[in-house]
Amino acid sequence: MSLYNKIIKKSIWVFHASASPCNNCDIEILDLITPGYDIERFGIKLVGSVRHADVLLVTGIVSHKVAPRIKQLYEQAPKPVFVVGIGTCTIGGATFKQSYNRAGAPLDKIIPVNAFIPGCPPKPEAMIDGIVKLLGTLK
């Protein structure tokens, strides 16, 4: 595993799945790859298919309709895959705590999660920090 970890630190491919968020975390994720923050300089890249991804970013409360799809996405991803829950919604549901359409909370009741990044929405700096901390745990 050590060789894999050494390589993955230099080039992380990210897939982003929005599981009924308010859109805000999603546009902040897109903000990361534009010139303001430009995370491609760290080798982090958004990819089109979860089959190519090393990290799965999930935003939002997971609604009943999305939950099976999120599970499916996790199963399709090549292992090891790191799941990062972005935003307070994935942790405690934030303002949607009483929502009748909330499948499971926190997110790790549905799929295993490696890191949570709190905030509504988390600032782009916080997201970069979260990913860097996640990579710090790799040996």
């Binding site: 929005s18 609604s63 999305v66 949607f96 929502s99 009748y100 359409n101």
Partner: peptide, 21 residues
């Protein structure tokens, strides 16, 4: 329907000021 969170129902349990948030 993937994004439905049920705002209108939650709003009925919140005060007017909380509804704004």
């Amino acid at each position: 329907g993937w994004m439905h969170r049920g705002h209108e129902k939650i709003s009925e349990t919140r005060t007017f000021t909380q509804s704004i948030f």
